[in-house]
């Protein structure tokens, strides 16, 4: 599974992208967030307040209850501030 981070989520996680193999128990974005939060103190900080995070699965906006599978690209980022 390819995981991407943007803006302050990237800064806290300490990387822009990483490949992870979280195992069969991870079936939703929420499960994946639980798994990622344990990877490092920076990851824990990135996922500390999920109300501040938005998610995309395969480049489409998704939610923490959205399903994820082994070949998905999952991105975590703050609310968008373009324009």
């Amino acid at each position: 599974m390819r995981v991407l981070y943007f803006a302050w989520v990237r800064e806290r996680a300490g990387c822009a992208a990483e490949d992870v193999a979280p195992g069969a128990g991870v079936t939703t974005v929420s499960d994946l967030a639980d798994f990622l939060a344990q990877l490092s103190p920076g990851h824990a900080a990135a996922f500390a307040d999920r109300t501040r995070l938005r998610v995309a699965v395969n480049q489409e906006q998704a939610g923490f209850d959205s399903p994820v599978a082994a070949n998905d690209e999952v991105a975590f980022f703050p609310p968008m501030t373009g324009g």
Partner: peptide, 11 residues
């Protein structure tokens, strides 16, 4: 729509 739905972030 661009403001809320396009994945840009300002620093």
């Amino acid at each position: 729509y661009l403001k809320t739905d396009a994945p840009f972030w300002k620093c």
